[in-house]
Amino acid sequence: MTDLQQLVVQWQAAYRAYTEAHEANRYVAADDPAAAARIAPAYRRVAWLWRQLAALESTPWWAKAAALHAAETFDHQADVNERIASGDRAVGAHHGQVPVESGGQ
């Protein structure tokens, strides 16, 4: 099995674990430490494997760029979830939601 094939198998398993963690977190609050602790390692593992794929000499430049961007995105999500898991509730509290105001329109 080539290096690429081995990495693809590992990436598929890591992404499957990420998907399972994401699904398990579907109905929990964005600032739930237990949910964040479940998914942070999955984000980190997928990011690492994206970087391994980008590092292969045979990977075309455009695929390297895409893989590195994906790795940065997954690492960012791992960082956010690691902070939430450690008790920093302010990090994921609003998750991009616009505050709802009472009354009026």
Rank of each mutant, 00 (worst) to 15 (best):
G87N: 08
G87K: 03
D88G: 03
R83N: 09
S86Q: 13
N81K: 02
H76M: 11
D79Q: 12
A78K: 13
E101M: 03
E82N: 06
I84H: 08
A71V: 03
Q77M: 12
A78M: 04
R89A: 15
R89H: 09
E82I: 04
E101V: 04
T73A: 14
G92D: 09
G96C: 02
V100C: 04
I84A: 08
G103F: 01
A85Q: 04
G96S: 08
D79V: 10
S102F: 01
H95L: 07
G87W: 03
E72K: 10
D88H: 12
H95E: 08
A85C: 06
P99T: 01
V91T: 14
D88E: 15
V100L: 14
E82F: 08
A93L: 13
N81E: 15
R89M: 05
I84E: 12
G103C: 02
S102N: 03
A71T: 06
V80F: 06
N81R: 06
A85R: 01
D75H: 10
G87T: 09
A71Q: 07
A93N: 07
Q97F: 05
H95K: 07
H95C: 05
A71P: 12
G103E: 09
S102D: 00
A78N: 03
E82C: 00
D79R: 14
D75N: 11
D88P: 07
S86V: 00
G103L: 01
G87Y: 07
R89P: 00
H76S: 13
F74V: 00
Q97K: 10
R83L: 12
T73G: 05
R83D: 15
G96R: 01
A90S: 15
G92R: 07
A78V: 11
E82H: 03
G96V: 02
E72N: 14
V100S: 03
V100K: 04
A85P: 09
E72S: 15
V80N: 05
P99V: 01
R83H: 10
F74Y: 15
E82P: 00
N81A: 10
E82M: 06
S102G: 10
N81F: 05
A85I: 03
G87I: 11
T73Q: 12
A78Y: 05
A71R: 02
D75F: 11
R83Y: 08
T73W: 13
H95F: 05
H94T: 12
V98N: 01
G92F: 08
V91S: 11
S102Q: 03
A90M: 06
Q97R: 14
T73Y: 15
V98E: 14
E101S: 08
G92A: 06
T73M: 11
N81Q: 11
D88F: 13
F74A: 11
V91D: 14
A71M: 08
P99R: 00
A78F: 05
V98P: 01
D79E: 13
D75L: 09
V100W: 11
D88Q: 14
N81W: 09
F74L: 09
V91Y: 08
A93F: 12
V80Q: 09
T73S: 12
E82Y: 08
S86Y: 01
G103D: 02
P99F: 00
A90C: 00
G92L: 04
A85T: 05
Q97T: 07
V98R: 01
R83K: 07
Q97C: 04
H95T: 03
A85Y: 04
H76P: 01
D75T: 10
S86K: 07
Q77S: 13
H95V: 02
H95S: 10
